[in-house]
Structures are given as structure tokens and as C-alpha cells.
Design a protein around this nucleic acid. Structure first.
Lengths: 224, 224
DNA sequence: CGGCGCGAACTGTGATCACAATCGTCCGGA
DNA sequence: TCCGGACGATTGTGATCACAGTTCGCGCCG
């Protein structure tokens, strides 16, 4: 299986595609916390050489979405601890409402429609109890909003935090089942955005996060 | 120059050493913002193959300490913009005082002594107008304190932010000269730590950052 | 039949090579 | 003198190999 040719001209770099694949798997929690992964295995699954996987993994380790055992240098998904959850919650509760507030001053009708469409998708997934789809749609909702803030530094911080907390959300919701997926504050946020109410958007997102984190905290406290 | 042997058993990985080298160069501002860098050049300077440099660079790019031109994919140190500075300031003003406050509840006499020693180094560098040494010592002071907070998620956030703002500090201080390096709030912070005054430590660090950032803001506003 | 040791397979790391794309420079023509 | 095109040098990316450490399983011995 020797492949020397690389006819891809300006197509997206392979390691970026690999990064997105793993990232998505982590955000939606398809890879369980504590689970070990390996470069060659991932490479084989994705049908590429270990090289771009190595690049992607380095990036994910830097973002703390993957951990590396200092003893044997093996890769794994970080385990959730109550302490880590607390820090991540605190950080998210600072950055994300800030992004929402900034975005509120720049919304337009198109974004409102887009958010409403995504939120419908969220509700649909919620109704069906489709955890995977819920995860993806919920992520899409938040970041469609945050991107509008035009604050790339803060946005990347939020992305990194979400990446770290993704696997745990899956564990929690997977454990409590679809019942754990109750109403969110998305509609409330959209209402605030419609009138460009920055403070209202900030509060709505803060409440949304806060409630989600409370559920996770409770679930983690029980056994993790 | 063929080297196949790798007799190093458990010595620190090469790519980590390379990472530290580049990181230090960035924090102390030895690499100017906007300046381009290349894998092979860095590798040659550090006397290693391009491979570990590639790993280190990936990590730094993930931490936004290095930027990658999406068009030609070439590497460079990110340029400072007023907008970026504002976001970084905001984020630092949230995380770092928080870390200081947490650390305050866990200080002991040893840490106090250590901080006093580092602060003396800072003052010495300040007196001599040695920007490089000042940078290093100032960084050491803050992180010796922050590490004590025992909050690794927040600590890594602070590390990432410092890494992003490092090159700019150098430019600013290099421009205004040693005169720009006036008194800091380190002594004030140490006093608060002595009595485990978390809120005092928070305020002292916040003031320290705030004043430093104001200088940078002013310097950036003039020309950048 | 139970435990233990040795070897095979798998792990991350680093080096080297191949390749396409880009940058920079120099030279020729108008 | 100035502009443009071509060619060489340099860049990042990906593949493959080499190597050392670890892990795991199978077979042999007690």
C-alpha cells in the first residue's frame, strides 16, 4: 500500500480533516473518557497514514482535549473529575455569556433565522431522545451565535473549553438518558437577540450553561 | 549527517525541549511579531531534525502563539492588533486574578520567600533596564504564584494567554525603553498573600495586569 | 491445571525522503 | 529603465522506515 502521489492541490489539508473527525467524535462524546487511543489505529480507521493523525493529535493535546500519559506516553481521553468540571464550568460561564453579549450587538435577521432553524433541530433531537444529534445541534447553536461576536481570541477559548467538556456531557446525558435533556434557554436567548439586548442574551446563555452544568455536576457527584 | 540511533532512554522528548525553546523566545519577545519562521530554519538553529520542530510548532499554533497563513501555509508570529490586545487583556484580567485568589488560600512561608526572591530579581532587572531578564523574571513571578492555585485548567489558560501577549510586551517595552518599566504591584500582592487575603491578592494582581496592559494599549494606539 | 516468562505485536518518537506549491531572484526583451 | 517570465531555492505536508519501550498473549514448565 505504497502511496507517494499527492495530487491534492488546494484541498483542505488532511491533518485538518483528521482533526475535525476526532474533534467531532470528542464533542459528541463518541469516544469515552478514559479510553485509550493510538495513532496507527486512528490512522487506519480514517484511511490515512499516521502522520496527519499525529499532527491532529498534537493539536488536540495542546487544547487539552486529549491527554498523554507521561509514563508510557500513551494517549487517552481525559477523565472527568469534579475539580476539572468546576474549573471548566467557571471558565465557560465567563467566556460564553461575554461572547453572546458581543454577538447581540451584531445580529441580523439572517442569523436569527439560522439560530431558530438550529434550535428547531435541537428540539427535534431532544424530542426523539437522540443524544448524538442533540450534541451536534446544541454545539452548532452556541457557536453560530458566538462566531458573530467577531472576537476570535475569546471564540477559540470557548471552542477549547467545549472540546474539553464534550466527552463528559455525553457520559452524563447517556447515563441519565433522554430524560435529562430538558428545556434549554435558547428561545429566551433568541428573544433577547431580536431586540439586540446584550445583557439579556448574556443572562440567557449564562442560565443555559448554568443549568446544563448543574446536571453534569450532579451526575458526576454520584459516582465519578 | 545521518543519525539513526536514538539511545536516549527516558530523557525529556526532543519536541518538548524545542517547544520550550520557542516558547521562551516568544515570551521574552526574542522573535518579533509579524516575523516569519520556518520549520527547517528553526530545526537547523536548534540542531535537530525538522520533525520535532514540526510537533512543537503544531502545539504553538494550537495555542495561538504562532499563526499560519491560510493561503501559503507559512508560519509567522501573530501581529498585534488593538482588538486582539483588548480581548487578551479582558481574558487575562479574569483568569489571573482568579488564580491569584485561589493561590492565596494555599500559600506557605516557602512560597512567600520564593516570590520575594523572584521579585527582587524583577526589581534588579528593572533597575538595570534589562528587558529580557525582566520578562523572564516577571513571568516566573506570576506563574510561581498561579501554580499554587492547583487549578490546572485555569493555569493552562493563563499560560496560553501569556504566550500570546508575550511578543507584544517586548515590542512595547523595547520601544519605550526601560523607562516604561515602572513599579509593579508585586510587593502589594505578597503582602496580601502573607495574611492569606484572597481578595487582596486578586485586586493586587488585577491592578498589576491592568497597569501593564494600559501601557501596552497606549503604545499600540500610537502606531500599530 | 495453574502460574510465569519470553517473545511477538503495538506504542510514540525521530529521521529521511518525495512532492507540490510558493517565493525570490535574475535575466531578457521592450 | 522597467516590466515580465522562467528557473532555482525554500516552504509545509505526507509517507515510510527505524528504533526503543511497553503491553499482552501464548506456550511451556512445575
Amino acid at each position: 500500500m505504497k502511496q507517494v502521489r499527492k495530487p491534492l492541490a488546494d484541498s483542505p489539508a488532511v491533518h485538518d480533516q483528521v482533526y475535525d473527525s476526532i474533534r467531532q467524535a470528542l464533542i459528541t462524546g463518541r469516544i469515552a473518557p478514559g479510553k485509550g487511543v493510538s495513532l496507527r489505529t486512528l490512522a487506519a480507521e480514517l484511511g490515512v497514514s499516521p502522520m496527519p493523525v499525529r499532527d491532529a493529535v498534537r493539536r488536540l493535546v495542546a487544547e487539552r482535549a486529549l491527554a498523554i500519559n507521561p509514563a508510557n506516553k500513551r494517549l487517552s481521553v481525559p477523565s472527568l473529575t469534579a475539580d476539572r468540571l468546576e474549573q471548566l464550568s467557571l471558565a465557560r460561564l465567563w467566556v460564553e455569556p461575554e461572547l453572546a453579549a458581543r454577538a447581540a450587538t451584531r445580529v441580523d435577521a439572517g442569523l436569527i433565522r439560522q439560530l431558530q432553524a438550529i434550535d428547531a433541530e435541537v428540539d427535534e433531537a431532544l424530542r426523539l431522545g437522540d443524544v448524538d444529534r442533540y450534541m451536534t445541534a446544541n454545539h452548532a447553536f452556541h457557536f453560530a451565535l458566538y462566531e458573530r461576536a467577531g472576537a476570535d481570541v475569546l471564540l477559540s477559548m470557548a471552542g477549547g473549553l467545549w472540546l474539553q467538556i464534550g466527552p463528559f456531557m455525553r457520559v452524563v446525558f447517556g447515563r441519565v438518558g433522554a430524560d435529562g435533556l430538558v428545556a434549554d434557554r435558547h428561545a429566551e436567548a433568541i428573544e433577547a437577540l431580536k431586540v439586540k439586548d446584550a445583557d439579556g442574551a448574556r443572562r440567557a446563555i449564562a442560565a443555559d450553561l448554568s443549568e446544563g452544568m448543574d446536571k453534569m455536576r450532579a451526575a458526576v457527584g454520584t459516582d465519578a
